[in-house]
Amino acid sequence: MAIAEQHNSPAQASSDKASADTTWHGIILQTLKRNEISLVPYVPDRVLTPLIKSLHADPFFTTFATAREEEAVGIVSGAWMGGRRGAVLMQTSGFATLANVLASLAVPYQIPLIMFVSERGTLGEFNYGQSLVCRTMRPVLDSLALEHHTITRLDELEFIVDRSIKQAVTTQAPVALILNPLLTGGKVFDK
């Protein structure tokens, strides 16, 4: 299993990779695949678009939009219990709808919920409401003592994602991987 793989450094981890795709979304896709995560429901975000497109284009993944983020959390939680691994993609504002399902399903039932959050609300945000929603995210994560990482650098991406997925699975605990604008470019006011 993928869990047995050893990576001595982030650099070595990248050089081991079969794919030459070194975009942030390419690295996430390959790391999901390597960790046998095949079910990826999402509520979209502009920044996530290239990742969502490439997941749809790859038959390894079952990926689809849900109406709400907590619905997606329910789906991957059920799938985990049925023996299939999943991850949920969302925007910061989507994460803000999840406190109830985290506290009443994922945490108490010890489900390794893997969340990718595209971070809006910082580093050039132009919508005041988005910047306020963003400020609720880390306090909610911290209030439940949930593991979370803010990823800002391409050279650290694979290491953080790969290790975090393995830790979530082996410790049966949720993890939030926050994709910062320094990594993705974010969304800026253009019109």
Partner: peptide, 25 residues
Amino acid sequence: NFYMLGSMGLAFPIALGVALAQPDR
């Protein structure tokens, strides 16, 4: 049997996840 103790409204999504994980059940 799986029993929900919270997460109001998620019985169908959880069941969908199980169904996608185990298509023969």
